[in-house]
Nucleic acid binder design. Structure first.
Lengths: 189, 189
DNA sequence: AAGCGCTCTTGATAAAAATCAAGAAATTAA
DNA sequence: TTAATTTCTTGATTTTTATCAAGAGCGCTT
């Protein structure tokens, strides 16, 4: 679980004994391609760190799917709102490829707070970071055209473009696959 | 400061002595119309609860202004990212009307954590709530047309429509004032 | 290798939204 | 109250994006 340790250490700088304790609560799990991590209506009862693979967060709305995000190696996946407030989730989270995860249950996750004094502080920082990412995303919708959103996302996530179906990236950027394809053609030439 | 007390009590359910302590750290402040709460590039060093009035959060970009949000009575105003990570803010926050606030400095705010054991836990919940709101907003951009966003926002924030310039609401919903005006005309008839 | 399903591309067309420009309407100031 | 300023509306036009439809490319399976 070196990657997970590295992540927690670098982001949260907890001391070694706490770090080991936290990491020990995560178990290795896997998902086969197309299996679900979470389904609409369920309450999210786990948090996972992605060791390898891709997961797509989406909803189905009137016969079409809207992809909210694609998560991959080195990031966490969960439904924060559902995990924290114990509400039913709106999202489906499905594996786009075979996926390896380090997973902690909600119960164990909640226990950490009792064992490590600064945990809520760290959690706060983690959620605040997620908040900041969303804030940037909203701003991109208020201030950029589809083409600009494409360009910006491409510059920051080149790898993704040859590893997952492009239609999902189109959706998460708020455009149709056709528009995505036309913009892409322009950028390539 | 009854409103502020009510808010903290109902959202965070802290015990009475803690509640009084927290509230005592807030000071009454005011802003005249058009004065700034925060300006682009500054580090946000305060958190305020709005007693009365309206504040607009916006940025200037290539000669035009993009409004990110309008905050009003009964809500908090700050730049969370800047407050927590001590980074320079991208936003301007300006009073749209004369405004009364209950304001706590970053220093005092940070002190609460040392004095009230569950504070970070409560902070976490607060930020998670903000996260959820942004998540909904992104989803509205991925799944709704300008007209649908108008309708949805109108249904949930009717009051705002006759209290602040509509161009700002247009901008925060991601459309031009002209488009906003045309949609509005349709909805009125 | 042929057939199937899925993804991506392309073209034609329609719809949505932005832009530009002018003028009302409403607010604020003199 | 009138003038000045700001905000909102309207129309004409352009640009952007979505929709619809068809076909190309590609990997899988058998």
């Amino acid at each position: 679980m070196t990657e997970l340790e590295e992540y927690i250490k670098s982001y949260f700088g907890v001391k070694q004994t706490d770090l080991e304790h936290i990491v020990s609560l995560f178990k290795e799990t896997t998902l086969k391609k197309d299996e679900y991590f979470l389904k609409t209506g369920q309450s999210c009862n786990k948090l996972s760190f992605i060791k390898s693979g891709f997961l797509r967060i989406y909803v189905t709305q009137e016969d079409k799917e809207i992809t909210q995000w694609i998560s991959t190696t080195g990031y966490f996946v969960t439904d924060l709102s559902s995990l924290i407030f114990e509400t039913p989730t709106r999202w489906n989270i499905q594996a786009l490829t075979d996926t390896e995860l380090y997973t902690i249950s909600k119960e164990d996750y909640q226990k950490i707070g009792n064992l490590i004094s600064q945990w809520h502080q760290l959690e706060k920082l983690f959620i605040a970071r997620c908040f900041t990412i969303l804030e940037d995303r909203i701003f991109s919708h208020l201030s950029m055209t589809a083409e600009e959103r494409y360009q910006f996302f491409f510059n920051h996530n080149k790898e993704l473009f040859n590893q997952v179906p492009l239609q999902y990236i189109a959706s998460m950027l708020g455009m149709t696959p056709e528009t995505f394809s036309r913009i892409r053609k322009k950028q390539l030439s």
